[in-house]
């Protein structure tokens, strides 16, 4: 009697550990569901949209310019930010706001990326805190799941001219 209860408990604990580990691996290496909040990525992603972020391209270092990524905020690692990659290491990026008359440029240092929100007027991004290390990127947003009428792939950047095409 005691042995059977013990065996069942052990089996249950084992299954819990096994499925917990499987879930960890899936979320860590395949992808996860993220709910975005905040206005910084409008109109591509609006408040309370649910997106799927895949982790594969981040682990294989295949993040490209124009991708939307989920990254850890450099000033608060418990908070995530959702932005568009505008420059990779070595790229020349424009640091000024679109309304500024003087255009200022800078180069993205090694191992860093330059992130900008699509809503250039209401977004705190690399233009205010500078380039962020590549390792803070958690995943690439590849699919929008909610709301249902906008299900599917994400649109291109609405701001022309921010992303300089690579040769």
């Amino acid at each position: 009697m005691l042995y059977s209860v013990l065996g069942k408990t052990l089996g249950f604990v084992g299954f819990t550990i096994q499925y917990g580990c499987l879930a960890h691996c899936a979320f860590e290496y395949i992808g996860e569901f993220v709910m975005c909040s905040g206005p910084s990525m409008e109109p591509t992603i609006t408040n309370h949209d649910v997106v799927f972020s895949e982790r594969v391209s981040r682990h294989l270092y295949r993040i490209e310019k124009g991708d939307i990524v989920i990254a850890k905020s450099p000033f608060n690692p418990r908070m995530n930010i959702c932005k568009r990659v505008v420059g990779l290491e070595g790229d020349k990026v424009c640091t000024s706001r679109p309304s500024d008359s003087f255009k200022t440029h800078t180069f993205v240092p090694r191992g860093h990326v330059w992130l900008e929100g699509d809503n250039l007027h209401n977004s705190s991004d690399s233009r205010s805190y500078g380039p962020i290390p590549y390792a803070l990127i958690r995943g690439r947003v590849c699919l929008k799941l909610w709301p249902p009428h906008s299900f599917g792939a994400l649109s291109q950047s609405p701001n022309d001219g921010r992303i300089t095409p690579s040769e």
Binding site: I17, Q18, G20, C21, L22, H24, C25, E28, Y29
Partner: peptide
């Protein structure tokens, strides 16, 4: 295999 690999990866990660 399906038990050992996820458990190992999770232990190394967490």
């Amino acid at each position: 295999f399906f038990v050992a690999v996820p458990v190992t990866v999770t232990v190394l990660d967490r």
